[in-house]
Computed example of a mutant assay.
Amino acid sequence: MFAEIAFLLYVGHLLADYPFQTDHQAAHKAGCGRKGWMANVAHASTHVLICGLLLAVGSMALGWHLPLLPAIAVVLWIGVTHGFIDRRWPVAGWMRIARQQGWAAHGGAAHVDQTAHVLALTLAALALSV
């Protein structure tokens, strides 16, 4: 069941990060102030809704009996971690600590960002599969 859950959460992540993320969210989700936080929360909420929907559909289609509270906790975890990672300073901080400033200057931050998201999704899938 882990593989199926992880796959659905990853598809949900891709949907929320690309076709369902607005230009406004992409441009402002890491910004300071109300505008930045509103864009970040809206984008993270999209992840919560899409991943929650895919888990519900997967449960019905595959006959899973996912416990409600852990499923809700996992979806909230996805939203919170996604919003945190997308503030951008955690990725920049990691790349500074890991001495990856050169790679960051040449597009590496996007890869580290996506790796952090996939790690959070994997932990969510593991938690729900136990």
Rank of each mutant, 00 (worst) to 15 (best):
A3L: 15
E4H: 11
E4R: 14
I5S: 04
I5T: 13
F7L: 15
L8H: 06
L9E: 04
A16M: 06
D17L: 09
F20A: 10
Q21C: 09
H24P: 00
Q25Y: 00
A26T: 11
A26I: 13
H28S: 10
K29P: 12
G31A: 14
C32F: 14
C32R: 15
G33A: 13
K35M: 08
G36T: 10
W37C: 10
W37V: 10
A39G: 13
V41Q: 06
A42N: 09
A42K: 13
H43P: 09
S45F: 09
T46A: 13
T46D: 07
H47K: 12
V48H: 05
L49Y: 02
C51V: 07
G52L: 09
L53V: 14
L54G: 11
A56R: 11
S59D: 07
A61E: 12
L66G: 04
P67A: 13
L68C: 10
L69R: 13
A71M: 15
A71P: 13
A71L: 10
A71E: 02
W77S: 12
W77D: 05
I78P: 05
I78Q: 07
I78A: 05
G79K: 05
G79Q: 01
G83P: 11
I85T: 04
I85W: 02
D86H: 02
D86V: 03
D86L: 03
R88E: 11
P90W: 00
P90Y: 00
V91E: 00
I97C: 12
I97T: 11
I97N: 04
Q100N: 00
W103V: 05
A105E: 12
A105M: 05
V112R: 02
D113T: 02
D113Y: 01
D113G: 06
T115H: 02
A116P: 01
V118E: 00
V118L: 15
A120M: 13
A120I: 02
A120E: 00
L121T: 00
L123N: 01
L123C: 13
A124W: 02
A124E: 02
L126P: 00
V130Y: 06
V130F: 10
